[in-house]
Deep mutational scan, measured.
Amino acid sequence: DENEERIRAFALYKGIDPEKARELWERGEINKDDEEKAWREYK
């Protein structure tokens, strides 16, 4: 689903483990601007 892809995109963008990215996502600790930037680059 799209959230999974967004988490993966963010992990790649930040160079972090996707599981770590998922934890940040679930806790609401992902910066929305960074997340959008990562998503645009990923697509």
Rank of each mutant, 00 (worst) to 15 (best):
D1T: 12
D1W: 13
D1H: 11
D1E: 12
D1P: 11
D1V: 11
D1Q: 12
D1M: 11
D1A: 11
E2P: 12
E2Q: 12
E2Y: 14
E2K: 09
E2A: 13
E2S: 13
E2V: 13
E2M: 13
E2W: 14
E2R: 10
E2N: 12
E2C: 15
N3P: 08
N3T: 15
N3Q: 14
N3Y: 15
N3R: 15
E4H: 07
E4P: 03
E4L: 10
E4M: 10
E4T: 08
E4G: 06
E4W: 13
E4D: 12
E4N: 08
E4Q: 07
E5G: 05
E5V: 06
E5T: 06
R6H: 07
R6M: 09
R6Q: 03
R6V: 05
R6K: 09
R6G: 01
I7Y: 05
I7W: 12
I7H: 01
I7R: 01
I7M: 06
I7Q: 01
I7K: 01
R8S: 04
R8V: 10
R8L: 15
R8A: 08
R8I: 14
R8C: 15
R8E: 04
R8M: 14
R8D: 03
R8W: 14
R8K: 14
A9W: 10
A9Y: 08
A9H: 04
A9I: 08
A9M: 06
A9S: 04
A9V: 08
A9T: 02
A9F: 07
A9N: 04
A9D: 02
F10L: 14
F10I: 15
F10Q: 01
F10M: 09
F10D: 01
F10K: 01
F10G: 01
F10Y: 15
F10R: 02
F10V: 12
F10T: 02
A11P: 01
A11I: 02
A11S: 05
A11K: 00
A11M: 02
A11W: 02
A11Y: 03
A11G: 03
A11D: 01
A11L: 01
A11E: 01
L12M: 13
L12P: 00
L12Y: 12
L12G: 03
L12E: 10
L12D: 06
L12V: 10
L12F: 11
L12R: 11
L12C: 15
L12I: 13
L12N: 07
Y13G: 01
Y13S: 04
Y13H: 04
Y13D: 02
Y13P: 00
Y13N: 02
Y13M: 07
Y13V: 03
Y13Q: 03
Y13E: 03
K14P: 00
K14G: 03
K14T: 12
K14S: 10
K14R: 08
K14F: 15
K14A: 14
G15C: 15
G15R: 06
G15H: 08
G15Q: 08
G15M: 05
G15P: 00
I16E: 00
I16N: 00
I16A: 00
I16W: 05
I16G: 00
I16V: 05
I16Q: 00
I16H: 00
I16S: 00
I16T: 01
D17A: 13
D17Y: 03
D17F: 04
D17N: 09
D17E: 11
D17K: 09
D17W: 03
D17M: 07
D17S: 15
D17V: 06
P18C: 15
P18A: 10
P18V: 15
P18H: 13
P18Y: 15
P18D: 08
P18R: 09
P18M: 15
P18N: 11
P18F: 15
E19C: 14
E19M: 12
E19D: 13
E19Q: 12
E19W: 10
E19A: 13
E19T: 09
E19P: 04
E19N: 09
E19V: 12
K20I: 14
K20F: 13
K20V: 14
K20S: 11
K20Y: 14
K20D: 10
K20W: 11
A21D: 00
A21L: 02
A21K: 00
A21S: 04
A21N: 00
A21T: 01
A21M: 04
A21Y: 02
A21G: 01
A21I: 04
R22E: 02
R22G: 01
R22V: 03
R22M: 05
R22S: 03
R22N: 01
E23N: 06
E23H: 06
E23D: 10
E23A: 10
E23T: 07
E23W: 10
E23Y: 08
L24K: 03
L24H: 04
L24S: 03
L24A: 06
L24F: 05
L24E: 02
L24I: 07
L24G: 00
L24R: 02
L24D: 00
L24N: 00
L24Y: 05
L24C: 09
W25D: 00
W25E: 00
W25C: 07
W25A: 03
W25V: 04
W25T: 00
W25N: 01
W25G: 00
W25H: 05
W25P: 00
W25S: 02
E26L: 14
E26A: 13
E26K: 10
E26Y: 13
E26G: 07
E26P: 00
E26I: 13
R27K: 13
R27Y: 04
R27G: 06
R27F: 04
R27T: 08
R27V: 04
R27I: 05
R27H: 07
R27W: 05
R27L: 10
G28V: 01
G28W: 02
G28Y: 03
G28C: 10
G28L: 03
G28F: 03
G28A: 05
G28T: 02
G28P: 00
G28R: 05
G28D: 04
G28Q: 04
G28N: 07
E29L: 14
E29H: 06
E29P: 02
E29G: 07
E29R: 05
E29W: 08
E29A: 10
E29S: 06
E29Y: 07
I30T: 04
I30R: 02
I30C: 05
I30F: 11
I30W: 10
I30N: 02
I30L: 06
I30H: 03
I30Q: 02
N31M: 08
N31H: 09
N31I: 06
N31Q: 09
N31P: 12
N31F: 06
N31C: 13
N31A: 11
N31T: 14
N31R: 07
K32N: 07
K32Y: 09
K32G: 08
K32H: 09
K32V: 10
K32T: 09
K32L: 11
K32P: 14
K32E: 10
K32Q: 11
K32D: 07
K32I: 11
D33H: 08
D33I: 09
D33K: 07
D33N: 08
D33A: 11
D33T: 08
D33Q: 10
D33M: 09
D33F: 09
D34Q: 05
D34T: 05
D34E: 15
D34N: 03
D34P: 01
D34M: 07
D34H: 03
D34R: 01
D34I: 06
D34V: 05
E35Q: 12
E35W: 15
E35F: 15
E35S: 09
E35N: 08
E35A: 15
E35K: 08
E35M: 15
E35H: 05
E35G: 06
E36M: 07
E36V: 07
E36G: 03
E36P: 01
E36H: 05
E36L: 09
E36C: 14
E36Q: 07
E36D: 10
E36A: 08
K37E: 12
K37N: 12
K37G: 06
K37W: 09
K37R: 14
K37S: 09
K37L: 12
K37D: 09
A38S: 11
A38R: 02
A38Y: 06
A38D: 03
A38F: 11
A38L: 04
A38E: 02
A38P: 02
W39M: 07
W39I: 05
W39E: 03
W39Q: 04
W39G: 02
W39V: 03
W39F: 06
W39Y: 07
W39N: 02
W39H: 03
W39S: 02
W39T: 01
W39P: 01
R40I: 12
R40Y: 13
R40A: 14
R40K: 13
R40T: 11
R40E: 12
R40S: 11
R40P: 02
E41H: 12
E41W: 15
E41G: 05
E41A: 14
E41C: 15
E41S: 10
E41Y: 14
E41P: 02
E41K: 13
Y42T: 04
Y42M: 05
Y42N: 03
Y42S: 04
Y42G: 04
Y42K: 03
Y42I: 04
Y42P: 03
Y42L: 05
Y42F: 09
Y42E: 03
K43R: 12
K43C: 15
K43D: 06
K43M: 14
K43T: 13
K43F: 12
K43L: 14
K43I: 14
K43P: 05
